[in-house]
Amino acid sequence: MWNFPLFPDQASTIAKHVDALYFFALGIAGFFTAMICVLILAFAARYRRKSTADRLNPPTASRTLEIIWIGGPMLLMLTMFTWAAILFYKMYDPPVDALEVYVVGKQWMWHAQHSEGRAEINELHVPLGRPIRLTMTSQDVIHSFFIPAFRVKQDVLPGRYTTMWFEPAKIGRYHLFCAEYCGTNHSAMGGWVYVMEPVEFQQWLSQAGTGASMAEQGERLFVQYHCAGCHRGSQTVHAPRLEGVYGRPVPVQQGTEVRFTLADYRYIRDSILRPKSEVVAGYEPVMPSFEGQITEPDLLKIIAYIKSIGAKEATQ
């Protein structure tokens, strides 16, 4: 009963840095709390009413003391702020070669899907030593993808994509929680993150029954929802080809002038759900809206497909 943990595992590369900052802050807290308590107890004891300690001309203000206890905390706080800000930026900026995983939060379960196609509920298998980048969205309310052992957390918002990245550094099984209150089974909406050897991970990934990769499933949906009818070149409808579009700026007609928007997840998702909001210059806004017809996981698959053909040149 008594072998309960007092400190979480350090299972990601960033964990050590966050803990170092935490211990620094803990040190400051401990030092100042102890100092104040010792001072108070000392003064209370030494200058108690009956004691005969000397109480001549007690100071009621001293500029030097004030400067010390304004300047001191100010310096400590500036160091903590800059240290935390640098670390925060590092936690924000995902490396380019990260493994893509798509997460959809739904009321009271996590649906994770690897770009190679394997999907899982309330579980996430990740290889050791490779940065993983999660692109996440929610189908209903705000959730929050929280892995304490990796010291990472990111709210998952409906109607928007949010990103988080980490690099596992220790094999094992770690808790996955939902940290933003989301309704009845908020406490049941969690699971496990398995960090596996890279070789083991590849086997797990290509296990039988995993089916097509996300891009292939996306292509199937691309045909199924008749996107291919227009976007793969047709005589009747004049629609932009989607090869070589992902990740590059596209010219968008904004009233009279034209501005360039990056064709990223947000832009493609908005163009599928609300096609008339950012129409590519030189094209008519005739595309129907797919709002409410395509579910979030399918959207992610279609976008993964468009991303996969992003590298190829448009072939007529």
Partner: peptide
């Protein structure tokens, strides 16, 4: 008119 102007109805 929105043929020339993009429009997010919401």
């Amino acid at each position: 008119k929105s043929s020339s102007l993009p429009l997010d109805p919401r």
